[in-house]
Design a protein around this nucleic acid. Structure first.
Lengths: 349, 349
DNA sequence: CTGAAAGCGCTTACAG
DNA sequence: CTGAAAGCGCTTACAG
């Protein structure tokens, strides 16, 4: 009822938005004062403040972020650029980033690139036009130009998973080389000698590093490497696994370089009626939630994605709020969880 | 090199942004004209247009979305409000929405509510302040006030999965009653008579509808219903399954009302050393990508999430671009995929 | 087809 | 502590 009494009651679609000005009028102060109580930046006399607050309430005032942002020269937003949010690795990362951003009063603009350099470029430029304060990006090949433009224009960027060329950016990385080496060594310790790799794209840094870690482990054990490229995707993993199965002698164990390809590998194995564990040992890099749901549960190397995401946010806000400028790079270790898919060859017999 | 020649070469962090004004000066036209070539809204003489374009190029001009949006009174953005993007159902939905929004030149603001009414309220108000053009929301209990405020202020909303109270909103729904009924009937046809339900929260419409569908199927077969509330979450599903297992006589089949709870059910069954299929038949509502990865593969009812998301976008843009005002409501059927987890009782013996 | 001018709704030195 | 005023970078009637 009280709502309806207001002179210019706001109902229906085309209702006039109430701005700082009408609040000021009703409270009998200047719009500058209203703005001051809004931002809490300057001191305002208690009684005046109360009048303003009351006026806001009565008029159902909502600040206009667009105006605030234009005035402040940036939006209270960060951009997240990932290749595909349907990859559980990024789903988790995005979830953690969203959470931390919300707590800090920032919104999140979601950008999927599909590993497409053009889409990435479009999104990066868009983020610049949108004047976000920062972006967390897991860059696909190239795109270094747009990243530099972003930084040039004063937007902070932290690279996630993969480095960007611009040395001014921060980076949160995982020790991919170590992970692949660890995975491979684990299988070697179980007595395997014919160990294949379903690897990711070597054009992507993570793919190349995981390949090298695998190769290093094989080399120092005096074993012959056997790698196929699965391009980090489900179908690729399926095809790559098929290729490994056709090798002679057929490997007795496989390291799979990410969670998506692991799905492909499981499919290929099922299609070929090859039993995981008894006929083919498996270690997966990435430890998605379904790794212990499948039968047998999969031995996996987990990245501390949540921690990594929080670290990325921390890095970002150190720049935004504390004006840090010297770039930082943080690396995280994977953690091996041994489940049933990687067995000792001895015991399997 | 040519970049460096510009009088006020823009380098380093604090570089002055180039605006429409400097472009206008360099091209020897008014800023109005620059704006016109920018928007493409009005005709501009060819030669003038070329001069402007050239000036933009030379100065590396980037339009300021913040200013555009303030002037136009809305941001080229839509908001997506879901309970949790880590639920594969929403992951897929968000992915599809992002895709369609990008194609239409819109950005996506991601909002996770965690089913928390306060967080949802905060996000809904934020979306209003941000002046997005529309929001797709899978609302948690309540929140109807903020939704109405959104619509009052001219922002279009379409409800996803669950209806909102405000009759002005569009809705994209799934036939939850039918799905649960179908799932239950499938198990009845296999000869099961003791069929439990791991249900979702009844405060949520989808939870209540799925429960009713289950109850209807049981009733018309003259069977006694046995339902436990799993709250649509993994742990809840685990607990609810535990409760069903303690019932006497123990059910020989379970319908699980969403994908998260199915994970919980699988865990509970494993913990109790009860074999899926031979000792406990299973039908899951939702068909996540891992449903055919587990052993045995799970019989599941899939929602056409992608289609539903596209439908939601279509609805939204009908309002935004074609000014449709009468509300629409679209329903989608689930599709049953029979896999190995639901067996005929006869054959199992 | 083009320009001068007003204005979107805020914030923030600058005075007092 | 408070107000008048300028300005963030655009767009869009209004004239011509």
């Amino acid at each position: 009822m009280s709502k309806e009494q207001d002179g210019d009651s706001a109902q229906g679609r085309a209702s006039r938005r109430v701005s700082i000005r009408q609040v000021a009028e009703r409270a009998g102060v200047s719009s500058a004062t209203v703005s001051r109580v809004l931002t809490g930046s300057a001191n305002v006399r208690g009684s005046v403040r109360d009048r303003v607050l009351a006026a806001m309430q009565e008029l159902n005032y909502r600040p206009n972020r667009l105006a605030q942002s234009l005035r402040r020269q940036h939006a209270q937003m960060i951009g997240i650029v990932v290749s595909d949010i349907e990859n559980p690795h990024f789903t988790e990362m995005v979830r953690a980033v969203e959470d931390g951003a919300f707590r800090r009063g920032f919104r999140v603009l979601l950008c999927n690139t599909d590993e497409d350099p053009e889409k990435q470029a479009a999104y990066l430029q868009m983020l610049e036009a949108e004047r976000v304060v920062g972006v967390i990006v897991s860059p696909c090949a190239s795109g270094s130009e747009e990243v530099s433009a972003l930084i040039d224009s004063g937007i902070d960027v932290v690279a996630f998973d993969r480095v960007v060329e611009d040395p001014r950016a921060d980076a949160v990385l995982a020790n991919n080389f170590d992970a692949a080496q660890l995975a491979t060594n684990h299988l070697i310790e179980q007595g395997h000698t014919r160990i294949g790799l379903v690897g990711g794209s070597v054009e992507v840094a993570t793919g190349a590093e995981r390949l090298r870690g695998y190769q290093a482990a094989m080399a120092s054990a005096g074993l012959e490497p056997l790698a196929a490229d699965g391009g980090f995707r489900i179908e690729g993993g399926e095809l790559a696994t098929g290729a490994l199965l056709r090798a002679y002698p057929r490997p007795s164990a496989i390291v799979v370089a990410n969670n998506l390809m692991t799905i492909g590998t499981l499919r290929a194995l099922r299609a070929a009626s090859i039993a995981v564990r008894t006929e083919m040992a498996l270690v997966a890099i990435d430890d998605p939630f379904w790794a212990d749901l499948v039968e047998p549960p999969i031995t996996a190397l987990a990245q501390p994605v949540r921690e990594m995401a929080e670290s990325a946010l921390t890095l970002l806000f150190e720049r935004i709020e504390n004006n840090r400028t010297e770039p930082k790079r943080i690396s995280f270790d994977f953690q091996l969880t041994v489940r049933q898919s990687s067995h000792s060859l001895a015991r399997a017999r």
